[in-house]
Every structure is written in structure tokens, then in C-alpha cells.
Design a protein around this nucleic acid. Structure first.
Lengths: 225, 225
DNA sequence: ATCCAATAATAGTATTACTATCTTATAAAA
DNA sequence: TTTTATAAGATAGTAATACTATTATTGGAT
């Protein structure tokens, strides 16, 4: 049986739903490849159009601008991560086990998921590490937030915050700790790759070290006392 | 007695030293104002030139492009923060007290420092919260790093890492914890201001809450056990 | 056969991110 | 005092970016 996984996307992120056409899917597929290759700053719709073999105007029929496309990709990614977490924590009762799995999922470079044909999760994960925060570190963050562009991120954060509260109902900062885990999983990964002296993982460059660090950080904080 | 504080800057960050001329100082002063007002994405040298009352070409004689200018501002900022930390921790012996002060300095919006006439530290602090990570979240991070553009950030991280190791010599992740404190102090501040549901400080919006959170996170992790 | 939506083809504009050149003001060196 | 170097101002120009608009073509549903 082949199952296709669909993440429900905010309609305001696009002008035309890229999931509903071949060109749309190509835009998603190739934008991930191209942003991965060139970085978000030098990524343009013109280059993307050339890569796909369509025209600039063709892309603009789907996305207003490259910022919206980045927000779309990050929203999709966080929705997908939340799905992964719910899937892997299904039927697990012990909140500590759940939180450990969350940390592992957040800090691990994923395999390409065959359930989503036109999205390479492995590349997308790398993009989110480097470019993800640029989706909200803008002057428009307030307006974008009003349009619920960051809902998937917030939902994920709420899910993790709830698991934290299950681990220790008296812990005072479940939401801040949740967003801290998410951000630090990515930042430490970026530092490990590019500025290793900012981490303790410069020699090994192993994701498992980041997981160990986060587990230590989180579970000593949550020890009831 | 009036003392002027000078942060020694990497010469490769500029074409002409902005500290050595009136126009140069104006470029720094007004770039902070303008980036604060419009955000880094819509900040251009043309707008900056208009604000100052000079020409675009005039700015280009000092900085190759706006990325270098941003790296310059962040490098200056981290150098200044390290100076603040050394100044406030002078003669303190207890590493726990030192680390508490570090956290406070990192998480507190500073007053404009009169020792630096043409830099508004308060605005600069806000800029670094929103734009600071864009200095290294680029494709060129490797080359920029080779030219030592991030040395002030790394030095600061090393200083904090050493204090952490003084607090608990057996703690396994002093550098990662140091970079985590630095990043989270800013990220939680940004979230508190713009995406409060990602934090536990949405109601109060007090920096002191971020300090409490960081103290809790750091000192439970460093408890010897 | 016709209608409609998606796409392709083409053109055009304002702004951005520069580079180049020439002139003027000024201040130190000869 | 004259020369000369340096910073800054004035002006122009270019390639790329970030769009918008219009018209034509195609392929599938009714």
C-alpha cells in the first residue's frame, strides 16, 4: 500500500496551491534544491524558473515573492516534524521517553521520506537549519503572525511544551524550554558544521553529541526538586 | 575625566576605517538607526546615503556591501559585550556570581553608553537580536570565518565557556552551553516581543523573566552530581 | 466543438547593487 | 608658497533583481 502524506497548508501563503499541479510541485522541488545550493540570499525566481524550464512569471503565479515561499517551506517542515513526533510517540505513555524521542527527531538529519514525492526532507532539513529563522526574523513578523503563517511552529512548540509539563508539572518554563530545544537543535548543528569552536562537538561532528547535550540540558532542568 | 572606549576591529571588514572620519562615524550611526527602523532586508546604501546627506558611492568607499557592514556591527557589538563582561566581573572570584552577571548582561537591554559617541548601544542591541544571526547564516560563512570576522563572537563564547568550566570542571559541554546562553538570550527576547506564545513571558514581557529562565536552565545543569 | 484553466512567451518598469570618472575642498609635505 | 595627496561630492552608467501586464497556446472536462 502506498500512502501519500499531505500537510495542510495555510492558503494565504500562496496564490495558487503548488500541490495541485505539476508546475507547482516542480517549484517546491527545485526551490529546495536551489536554496540548498545557493543560499536564500542569492536565490531568485528567475534562476528557479531557468532550473525548472519555465518563466519567472510562471513562478509568480504561485508565490507572491521569495519570502512567502520560504515561509511556505518552513511551515511545511514544522508541520511534517509535528507529524513525525506524533507518529513516533503514538502509544507511548512515559513522557520522559516521549521527550527523548522529540529531541532525537529534532536533532537528527532525516532520510528522504518516500511518502512525500516532491519534497526531499533531507535537503529541506538542511535549509531550515540555515534559512529557517529568516522566515520570522523580519520587520513583517507581526503581520505574518496575524495571518497565522507560524502556526505550525507554534503548534509544534505547544506539543513539546505539553510533554515537558507532563515530565514535570511544576516546571515553570515549558514553552520557553520547548522553543529553546527546537532552536538549539538547529543552531548547534549549524555551529558544529561551520563554526565548530562554538561547540564541544568540533572533533566528532556527530549529531548524537548534540542529542546528548540536549538530553543533559533538558532532563537536569526537569528533575523534580 | 572623559574616556573613549575603542573596540579594535578586523581591518578586512571595511575598505576605509569608519572610525577615522566624520563621514565614517555618520555611516555607523545612521546605519544603526536605519536598520533598526526598516530591517536589514530593505536597508540599502542608497537610503543610508540619503539619510546622511552623502552619495551612495560615498558609502561604498567605506564598506564593500551591506553584508560586510552588518558583520562589522555585530563584531563591534560582541566585542563591546565582552568588554562589559570583563568590566563587571573584574575582581569577582566566585564563578557562579560571574556567570549570573554574564547572563544578566546578555539578556538586558543596555543603556546608550556615553563612552562610545557615535554608537547607540540600545538600538544596536535590538538590531543584533533581530539581524545578528544573519551575519553568519549565509553561504559565505566559511570564507568569512577564515578571515576571522567572527572572532569577537568566538572570544566571547570562550570567555563564557571558561566561567562555566570554573563553575563545574566536570561539565561536558561548556562551549555549547556558552553559545546556547548567548543565542537563547536573544531568541527568547525576540519571541517574547513578537511571537509570545513561544515563551512563558507573554504576559509580563519582562527581561527579568528571561534571566530567571536562563539562570534556572544553566545552574541546574551545572549542579555537581 | 467549446470552454476553461494552466501555462508559455514576451515585454516592460522601478529598484538594487554595484563601478567608474571627474571635480572640488582641505590639509599636510616640500 | 606651491605642490600634492586624500577625502568627499557630483554625476553617470550597467547588470541584475523584483516585480507587473498582456497576449497566445495547449490540453482536458462538459
Amino acid at each position: 500500500m502506498e500512502v501519500q502524506l499531505q500537510i495542510k497548508m495555510n492558503e494565504k501563503l500562496f496564490l495558487r496551491n503548488p500541490e495541485h499541479s505539476e508546475l507547482g510541485k516542480k517549484i517546491i522541488l527545485h526551490s529546495i534544491n536551489l536554496i540548498y545550493k545557493t543560499g536564500f540570499e542569492s536565490f531568485t525566481f528567475k534562476k528557479l524558473a531557468e532550473e525548472i524550464g519555465t518563466t519567472e512569471a510562471g513562478i509568480y503565479r504561485y508565490f507572491e515573492n521569495k519570502h512567502k515561499l520560504l515561509v511556505y517551506l518552513t511551515a511545511w517542515y514544522w508541520g511534517w516534524v509535528e507529524y513525525q513526533i506524533n507518529y513516533h510517540n503514538n502509544n507511548i505513555k512515559d513522557p520522559t521517553v516521549k521527550l527523548k524521542r522529540v529531541i532525537k527527531i529534532l536533532a537528527t538529519t532525516v532520510q528522504d521520506d518516500k511518502q512525500t514525492s516532491y519534497i526531499n526532507e533531507s535537503l529541506l532539513h538542511q535549509i531550515i537549519i540555515t534559512e529557517g529563522s529568516k522566515a520570522y526574523l523580519t520587520k513583517q513578523v507581526g503581520e505574518d503572525n496575524k495571518q497565522h503563517f507560524f502556526k505550525p511552529y507554534k503548534d509544534l512548540c505547544a506539543v513539546i511544551g505539553n510533554i515537558i509539563s507532563e515530565c514535570n508539572p511544576k516546571y515553570k518554563y515549558p514553552k520557553s524550554l520547548a522553543s529553546t530545544i527546537i532552536e538549539i537543535a538547529h543552531i548547534q548543528n549549524f555551529f558544529m558544521q561551520h563554526l565548530p569552536s562554538l561547540t564541544d562537538f568540533g572533533k566528532t561532528k556527530e549529531e548524537s553529541d548534540i542529542i546528548d547535550f540536549l538530553n543533559d540540558l533538558v532532563f537536569t532542568s526537569l528533575k523534580k526538586g
